[in-house]
Amino acid sequence: MSVSEGTAAEQARFQAMIDAEQRVEPRDWMPEKYRRSLVRQISQHAHSEVVGMLPEGNWVTRAPSLRRKVALLAKIQDEGGHGLYLYSAAETLGVSRADLVDQLLDGSAKYSSIFNYPTLTWADIGVIGWLVDGAAIVNQVALCRCSYGPYARAMELICKEESFHQRQGYELVMALAQGTPEQIRMAQDAVNRWWWPTLMMFGPSDKTSPNSAQSMAWKIKRRSNDDLRQHFIDMTVPQANYLGLTMPDPDLTFNEETGQYDFGEPDWDELRRVVSGNGPCNRERMAAKRKAHAEGAWVREAATAHAEKQRRRREAA
Protein backbone atom coordinates (compact mmCIF):
# COMPACT_ATOMS: atom_id res chain seq x y z
CA MET A 1 0.00 0.00 0.00
CA SER A 2 1.41 3.38 -0.97
CA VAL A 3 1.07 5.96 1.76
CA SER A 4 1.53 9.47 0.44
CA GLU A 5 -0.53 12.32 -0.91
CA GLY A 6 0.93 11.40 -4.31
CA THR A 7 1.66 13.48 -7.35
CA ALA A 8 -0.99 15.69 -8.91
CA ALA A 9 -1.35 13.08 -11.66
CA GLU A 10 -1.92 10.29 -9.13
CA GLN A 11 -4.50 12.36 -7.30
CA ALA A 12 -6.30 13.22 -10.52
CA ARG A 13 -6.36 9.58 -11.58
CA PHE A 14 -7.73 8.61 -8.17
CA GLN A 15 -10.49 11.24 -8.30
CA ALA A 16 -11.38 10.21 -11.86
CA MET A 17 -11.73 6.62 -10.68
CA ILE A 18 -14.05 7.77 -7.87
CA ASP A 19 -16.06 9.98 -10.23
CA ALA A 20 -16.53 7.01 -12.56
CA GLU A 21 -18.10 5.12 -9.63
CA GLN A 22 -15.23 2.65 -9.52
CA ARG A 23 -14.56 1.05 -6.15
CA VAL A 24 -11.22 1.43 -4.43
CA GLU A 25 -9.70 -1.84 -3.19
CA PRO A 26 -7.14 -2.29 -0.38
CA ARG A 27 -3.98 -2.54 -2.46
CA ASP A 28 -4.85 0.32 -4.84
CA TRP A 29 -3.04 3.60 -4.51
CA MET A 30 -5.01 6.10 -2.42
CA PRO A 31 -4.26 9.54 -0.95
CA GLU A 32 -3.09 9.30 2.63
CA LYS A 33 -5.94 11.57 3.75
CA TYR A 34 -8.50 9.28 2.12
CA ARG A 35 -6.98 6.33 3.97
CA ARG A 36 -6.90 8.19 7.27
CA SER A 37 -10.48 9.41 7.12
CA LEU A 38 -11.64 5.90 6.29
CA VAL A 39 -9.70 4.40 9.19
CA ARG A 40 -11.26 6.96 11.50
CA GLN A 41 -14.80 6.51 10.21
CA ILE A 42 -14.74 2.70 9.99
CA SER A 43 -13.11 2.22 13.38
CA GLN A 44 -15.57 4.62 15.02
CA HIS A 45 -18.35 2.67 13.39
CA ALA A 46 -16.87 -0.61 14.68
CA HIS A 47 -16.54 0.76 18.22
CA SER A 48 -20.16 1.92 18.06
CA GLU A 49 -21.41 -1.57 17.24
CA VAL A 50 -19.50 -3.04 20.15
CA VAL A 51 -20.33 -0.37 22.74
CA GLY A 52 -23.92 -0.53 21.48
CA MET A 53 -24.19 -4.02 22.94
CA LEU A 54 -23.99 -2.60 26.48
CA PRO A 55 -27.25 -0.63 26.84
CA GLU A 56 -29.22 -3.57 25.46
CA GLY A 57 -27.29 -6.16 27.45
CA ASN A 58 -28.65 -4.37 30.50
CA TRP A 59 -32.09 -5.93 29.87
CA VAL A 60 -31.31 -9.48 28.72
CA THR A 61 -31.95 -11.09 32.09
CA ARG A 62 -35.15 -9.10 32.57
CA ALA A 63 -36.82 -9.69 29.22
CA PRO A 64 -40.51 -10.37 29.92
CA SER A 65 -40.78 -13.53 27.80
CA LEU A 66 -38.58 -16.13 26.18
CA ARG A 67 -39.58 -14.82 22.74
CA ARG A 68 -38.34 -11.33 23.58
CA LYS A 69 -35.24 -12.72 25.22
CA VAL A 70 -34.06 -14.78 22.23
CA ALA A 71 -34.74 -11.82 19.94
CA LEU A 72 -32.69 -9.50 22.13
CA LEU A 73 -29.85 -12.00 22.47
CA ALA A 74 -29.77 -12.58 18.71
CA LYS A 75 -29.73 -8.85 18.05
CA ILE A 76 -26.91 -8.21 20.49
CA GLN A 77 -24.94 -11.09 18.99
CA ASP A 78 -25.44 -9.53 15.53
CA GLU A 79 -24.02 -6.22 16.79
CA GLY A 80 -20.87 -8.02 17.95
CA GLY A 81 -20.61 -9.49 14.46
CA HIS A 82 -21.06 -6.04 12.92
CA GLY A 83 -18.15 -4.83 15.03
CA LEU A 84 -16.04 -7.66 13.64
CA TYR A 85 -16.95 -6.97 9.98
CA LEU A 86 -16.01 -3.33 10.47
CA TYR A 87 -12.75 -3.94 12.32
CA SER A 88 -11.80 -6.29 9.47
CA ALA A 89 -12.61 -3.60 6.90
CA ALA A 90 -10.47 -1.11 8.84
CA GLU A 91 -7.60 -3.60 8.98
CA THR A 92 -7.44 -3.74 5.18
CA LEU A 93 -6.19 -0.14 5.44
CA GLY A 94 -3.07 -1.21 7.31
CA VAL A 95 -4.04 -0.73 10.94
CA SER A 96 -4.06 -3.47 13.56
CA ARG A 97 -7.07 -4.55 15.56
CA ALA A 98 -5.13 -4.40 18.83
CA ASP A 99 -4.27 -0.75 18.20
CA LEU A 100 -7.88 0.13 17.37
CA VAL A 101 -9.12 -1.55 20.54
CA ASP A 102 -6.47 0.32 22.54
CA GLN A 103 -7.75 3.61 21.12
CA LEU A 104 -11.26 2.74 22.23
CA LEU A 105 -10.15 1.74 25.71
CA ASP A 106 -7.84 4.72 26.30
CA GLY A 107 -10.63 7.07 25.24
CA SER A 108 -8.85 8.56 22.22
CA ALA A 109 -11.34 7.00 19.74
CA LYS A 110 -14.96 8.04 19.49
CA TYR A 111 -18.11 5.96 19.12
CA SER A 112 -21.70 6.96 18.43
CA SER A 113 -23.04 9.39 21.03
CA ILE A 114 -26.34 7.49 21.21
CA PHE A 115 -24.89 4.67 23.30
CA ASN A 116 -24.11 7.04 26.13
CA TYR A 117 -27.77 7.23 27.12
CA PRO A 118 -29.23 4.87 29.74
CA THR A 119 -31.83 2.14 29.15
CA LEU A 120 -34.15 2.90 32.04
CA THR A 121 -37.19 0.76 31.20
CA TRP A 122 -38.07 -2.23 29.05
CA ALA A 123 -39.69 0.14 26.56
CA ASP A 124 -36.23 1.56 25.84
CA ILE A 125 -35.24 -1.78 24.32
CA GLY A 126 -38.09 -1.54 21.82
CA VAL A 127 -37.45 2.10 21.07
CA ILE A 128 -33.74 1.43 20.49
CA GLY A 129 -34.58 -1.26 17.92
CA TRP A 130 -37.18 0.90 16.22
CA LEU A 131 -35.51 4.33 16.29
CA VAL A 132 -31.79 3.79 16.89
CA ASP A 133 -31.45 0.81 14.57
CA GLY A 134 -33.82 2.55 12.18
CA ALA A 135 -31.50 5.56 12.03
CA ALA A 136 -28.48 3.28 11.71
CA ILE A 137 -30.13 1.55 8.76
CA VAL A 138 -30.73 4.85 6.94
CA ASN A 139 -27.07 5.70 7.45
CA GLN A 140 -25.82 2.27 6.48
CA VAL A 141 -27.93 1.85 3.37
CA ALA A 142 -26.29 5.03 2.03
CA LEU A 143 -22.86 3.64 2.93
CA CYS A 144 -23.43 0.49 0.85
CA ARG A 145 -22.38 2.70 -2.08
CA CYS A 146 -19.23 3.96 -0.36
CA SER A 147 -16.22 4.18 -2.69
CA TYR A 148 -14.08 1.91 -0.51
CA GLY A 149 -14.90 -1.69 -1.44
CA PRO A 150 -14.36 -3.48 1.90
CA TYR A 151 -16.44 -0.88 3.79
CA ALA A 152 -19.26 -1.05 1.25
CA ARG A 153 -19.29 -4.86 1.40
CA ALA A 154 -19.37 -4.82 5.20
CA MET A 155 -22.33 -2.42 5.01
CA GLU A 156 -24.24 -4.73 2.69
CA LEU A 157 -23.78 -7.65 5.04
CA ILE A 158 -24.82 -5.50 8.00
CA CYS A 159 -27.90 -4.07 6.29
CA LYS A 160 -29.19 -7.56 5.59
CA GLU A 161 -29.04 -8.32 9.31
CA GLU A 162 -30.34 -4.98 10.55
CA SER A 163 -33.89 -5.14 9.32
CA PHE A 164 -34.87 -7.72 11.93
CA HIS A 165 -33.43 -5.41 14.59
CA GLN A 166 -35.80 -2.63 13.65
CA ARG A 167 -38.82 -4.88 13.24
CA GLN A 168 -38.42 -6.63 16.57
CA GLY A 169 -38.13 -3.21 18.19
CA TYR A 170 -41.25 -1.89 16.53
CA GLU A 171 -43.18 -5.03 17.44
CA LEU A 172 -42.09 -4.63 21.05
CA VAL A 173 -43.14 -0.98 21.19
CA MET A 174 -46.44 -1.86 19.51
CA ALA A 175 -47.20 -4.42 22.24
CA LEU A 176 -46.75 -1.68 24.83
CA ALA A 177 -48.55 1.01 22.84
CA GLN A 178 -51.58 -1.26 22.58
CA GLY A 179 -51.38 -2.30 26.22
CA THR A 180 -52.47 -0.89 29.57
CA PRO A 181 -52.36 2.87 30.28
CA GLU A 182 -49.18 2.30 32.25
CA GLN A 183 -47.54 0.47 29.34
CA ILE A 184 -48.58 3.23 26.93
CA ARG A 185 -47.05 5.81 29.26
CA MET A 186 -43.85 3.78 29.39
CA ALA A 187 -43.64 3.59 25.59
CA GLN A 188 -44.29 7.33 25.22
CA ASP A 189 -41.71 8.15 27.88
CA ALA A 190 -39.08 6.10 26.05
CA VAL A 191 -39.87 7.84 22.75
CA ASN A 192 -39.60 11.21 24.51
CA ARG A 193 -36.15 10.40 25.80
CA TRP A 194 -34.73 8.74 22.64
CA TRP A 195 -36.12 10.90 19.81
CA TRP A 196 -33.67 13.82 19.96
CA PRO A 197 -30.56 11.74 20.66
CA THR A 198 -31.57 9.55 17.69
CA LEU A 199 -31.77 12.58 15.38
CA MET A 200 -28.28 13.56 16.56
CA MET A 201 -26.93 10.20 15.34
CA PHE A 202 -26.77 11.73 11.85
CA GLY A 203 -24.18 14.20 13.09
CA PRO A 204 -24.08 17.99 13.15
CA SER A 205 -25.99 20.06 10.64
CA ASP A 206 -24.42 20.39 7.18
CA LYS A 207 -23.80 24.06 7.85
CA THR A 208 -21.33 23.22 10.62
CA SER A 209 -19.97 19.83 9.56
CA PRO A 210 -16.32 20.37 8.62
CA ASN A 211 -15.32 17.01 7.12
CA SER A 212 -18.39 16.49 5.01
CA ALA A 213 -17.43 18.16 1.71
CA GLN A 214 -14.23 16.16 1.22
CA SER A 215 -15.94 12.92 2.29
CA MET A 216 -18.70 13.54 -0.23
CA ALA A 217 -16.18 14.29 -3.01
CA TRP A 218 -14.39 11.03 -2.24
CA LYS A 219 -17.74 9.25 -2.01
CA ILE A 220 -16.88 7.93 1.43
CA LYS A 221 -20.16 9.57 2.33
CA ARG A 222 -22.94 9.51 -0.24
CA ARG A 223 -25.61 11.68 1.39
CA SER A 224 -25.27 14.63 3.74
CA ASN A 225 -26.15 14.54 7.44
CA ASP A 226 -29.21 16.77 7.03
CA ASP A 227 -30.42 14.84 4.02
CA LEU A 228 -30.25 11.52 5.89
CA ARG A 229 -31.88 13.02 8.98
CA GLN A 230 -34.80 14.37 6.94
CA HIS A 231 -35.23 11.02 5.22
CA PHE A 232 -35.32 9.22 8.57
CA ILE A 233 -37.89 11.62 10.02
CA ASP A 234 -40.15 11.29 6.99
CA MET A 235 -40.12 7.52 7.29
CA THR A 236 -40.49 7.34 11.05
CA VAL A 237 -43.21 9.84 11.96
CA PRO A 238 -45.98 7.85 10.21
CA GLN A 239 -44.80 4.75 12.11
CA ALA A 240 -45.28 6.64 15.38
CA ASN A 241 -48.69 7.88 14.25
CA TYR A 242 -49.79 4.29 13.71
CA LEU A 243 -48.86 3.49 17.32
CA GLY A 244 -50.61 6.61 18.66
CA LEU A 245 -47.28 7.86 20.00
CA THR A 246 -45.96 11.37 19.47
CA MET A 247 -42.47 12.80 19.02
CA PRO A 248 -41.41 15.38 21.64
CA ASP A 249 -41.10 18.19 19.11
CA PRO A 250 -43.76 20.94 19.00
CA ASP A 251 -42.39 22.12 15.64
CA LEU A 252 -42.86 18.78 13.94
CA THR A 253 -45.46 19.27 11.19
CA PHE A 254 -46.06 17.89 7.74
CA ASN A 255 -45.26 20.46 5.07
CA GLU A 256 -47.72 20.03 2.19
CA GLU A 257 -45.48 22.02 -0.12
CA THR A 258 -42.27 20.05 0.32
CA GLY A 259 -43.98 16.76 1.08
CA GLN A 260 -41.64 16.43 4.06
CA TYR A 261 -41.79 17.03 7.78
CA ASP A 262 -40.55 20.31 9.20
CA PHE A 263 -38.93 19.84 12.59
CA GLY A 264 -37.26 21.74 15.41
CA GLU A 265 -33.55 22.30 15.96
CA PRO A 266 -31.77 19.54 17.90
CA ASP A 267 -29.81 20.70 20.95
CA TRP A 268 -26.32 20.73 19.43
CA ASP A 269 -24.75 21.68 22.75
CA GLU A 270 -26.02 18.43 24.15
CA LEU A 271 -24.43 16.52 21.25
CA ARG A 272 -21.10 18.30 21.84
CA ARG A 273 -21.30 17.48 25.55
CA VAL A 274 -21.96 13.79 24.95
CA VAL A 275 -19.33 13.46 22.20
CA SER A 276 -16.71 15.08 24.41
CA GLY A 277 -17.27 12.47 27.12
CA ASN A 278 -19.88 14.05 29.36
CA GLY A 279 -23.08 12.25 28.45
CA PRO A 280 -25.11 10.40 31.08
CA CYS A 281 -23.28 7.07 30.63
CA ASN A 282 -19.91 7.74 28.94
CA ARG A 283 -17.89 6.78 32.01
CA GLU A 284 -20.01 3.71 32.73
CA ARG A 285 -19.63 2.44 29.14
CA MET A 286 -15.88 2.90 29.09
CA ALA A 287 -15.52 1.28 32.50
CA ALA A 288 -17.56 -1.72 31.30
CA LYS A 289 -15.41 -2.10 28.17
CA ARG A 290 -12.15 -1.85 30.11
CA LYS A 291 -13.35 -4.35 32.69
CA ALA A 292 -14.44 -6.85 30.02
CA HIS A 293 -11.13 -6.48 28.19
CA ALA A 294 -9.09 -6.94 31.37
CA GLU A 295 -11.15 -9.89 32.57
CA GLY A 296 -10.88 -11.58 29.18
CA ALA A 297 -7.09 -11.39 29.14
CA TRP A 298 -6.57 -14.85 30.66
CA VAL A 299 -8.87 -16.39 28.05
CA ARG A 300 -6.86 -14.83 25.23
CA GLU A 301 -3.61 -15.97 26.83
CA ALA A 302 -4.91 -19.51 27.35
CA ALA A 303 -6.07 -19.76 23.73
CA THR A 304 -2.70 -18.53 22.49
CA ALA A 305 -0.87 -21.05 24.70
CA HIS A 306 -3.16 -23.86 23.55
CA ALA A 307 -2.62 -23.03 19.88
CA GLU A 308 1.14 -22.94 20.43
CA LYS A 309 1.09 -26.34 22.17
CA GLN A 310 -0.95 -27.88 19.35
CA ARG A 311 1.45 -26.45 16.78
CA ARG A 312 4.48 -27.90 18.55
CA ARG A 313 2.78 -31.27 18.87
CA ARG A 314 2.02 -31.32 15.16
CA GLU A 315 5.61 -30.45 14.35
CA ALA A 316 6.96 -33.21 16.59
CA ALA A 317 4.68 -35.85 15.04
Partner: peptide, 19 residues
Protein backbone atom coordinates in the same frame (compact mmCIF):
# COMPACT_ATOMS: atom_id res chain seq x y z
CA UNK B 1 -17.19 -13.76 3.01
CA UNK B 2 -14.73 -11.95 5.27
CA UNK B 3 -11.94 -12.41 7.74
CA UNK B 4 -11.31 -12.79 11.45
CA UNK B 5 -8.55 -13.25 14.00
CA UNK B 6 -8.04 -16.59 15.74
CA UNK B 7 -5.27 -18.35 17.61
CA UNK B 8 -5.48 -21.43 15.39
CA UNK B 9 -7.46 -23.04 12.59
CA UNK B 10 -9.92 -24.75 14.89
CA UNK B 11 -10.81 -21.50 16.62
CA UNK B 12 -11.02 -19.73 13.25
CA UNK B 13 -13.54 -22.39 12.12
CA UNK B 14 -15.66 -21.98 15.24
CA UNK B 15 -15.61 -18.20 15.12
CA UNK B 16 -16.40 -18.22 11.40
CA UNK B 17 -19.42 -20.38 12.12
CA UNK B 18 -20.60 -17.99 14.84
CA UNK B 19 -20.03 -14.84 12.83
Amino acid sequence: VGSLHAADGEMAQQNARDV
